[in-house]
């Protein structure tokens, strides 16, 4: 592994997509995307269904590797290295760049074991109490579960399960947390709790969130990237700017049409 972890001290960007095109077989799903993600900020990726926003998100921690026909052109630069270079270990990438999914997916084990899991598979042994408490605290779940850590995680509510998944992600000490529509299965109150949690976490972590909910992007993010589909159905970046700019006075008419609900 040759990642220079100190590079982020001077680099304002946590991760950068440079002329990235993403393919499933012969189909180009995303073309020529450039995206510089600011460190310790929340960046939202929005766009109509099928525009490739989840594909872009998944390319940030090589989650697409599991799809046999998947291919990437261009570079995803993280700590000065292209994460798709042959000498990069994708497992380490996924440890440093965690992901929270659309549906909460806790393991059918205790709350405690769910959080300790990442550390255990990385060789951690024995007493993980401090790590579990710290992670659950950061995920704003500790107060609700501290007396029931041995309880099966599946007994938690959907919102609690999602925060548990965030605690599980945090426990392996990532730098970046990718969130793929993390609130789409949650009720409005649980959704707002996750958004507040994202805001707290953004002081320590870089967060990239894909969301269908434009108001969520407006409420919860610092930067917004708008992707849409080109004529050949490949996803292209239309506009990327501060969330305030995108939702008050976007540069592009396509962006305006999309965020005002008149297109897409």
């Amino acid at each position: 592994m040759t990642l220079d972890k100190n590079s982020s001290i001077v680099n304002p960007f946590a991760i950068e997509a440079e002329n990235v095109s993403l393919y499933y077989g012969n189909f180009r799903a995303v073309k020529d995307v450039n995206l510089q993600i600011k460190a310790r900020k929340i960046t939202a990726i929005i766009g109509p269904s099928g525009c490739g926003k989840s594909t872009v998100l998944r390319s940030f921690n090589r989650m697409n590797d599991f799809i046999p026909s998947f291919r990437v052109e261009g570079g995803i630069v993280f700590h000065k290295k292209n994460i798709y270079d042959s000498d990069i270990d994708p497992v380490q990438i996924r440890q440093m760049i965690g992901m929270v999914f659309q549906k909460p997916n806790p393991f059918p084990k205790s709350i405690y074991e769910n959080v300790a899991w990442g550390s255990r598979i990385n060789g951690g042994k024995g007493n993980m109490d401090d790590l579990v408490e710290e992670s659950l605290q950061k995920a704003a779940l500790w107060d609700e579960v501290k007396d029931d850590l041995k309880k099966n995680a599946l007994t938690l509510s959907g919102g609690q399960q999602q925060r548990l998944c965030i605690a599980r992600t945090i426990a392996v000490k990532p730098e970046i947390i990718l969130m793929d529509e993390p609130c789409s299965a949650l009720d409005p109150i649980a959704t707002l709790k996750i958004e507040e949690l994202m805001r707290d976490l953004s002081s320590s972590y870089t967060i990239i969130i894909v969301t269908h909910n434009m108001q969520q992007a407006a409420r919860a993010s610092d930067y917004t990237a708008f992707l849409t589909m080109d004529d050949d159905r490949a996803g292209v970046m239309v506009e990327y700017d501060s969330t305030e700019k995108i939702f008050v006075k976007p540069e592009k008419k396509l962006t305006e049409d999309y965020i005002t609900g008149r297109y897409g």
Binding site: M214, F247, V248, K249, E256, I259, T260
Partner: peptide, 9 residues
């Protein structure tokens, strides 16, 4: 209606 951008302006 949660207007944004031009509508909100």
């Amino acid at each position: 209606q949660q207007p944004v951008a031009h509508d909100l302006r």
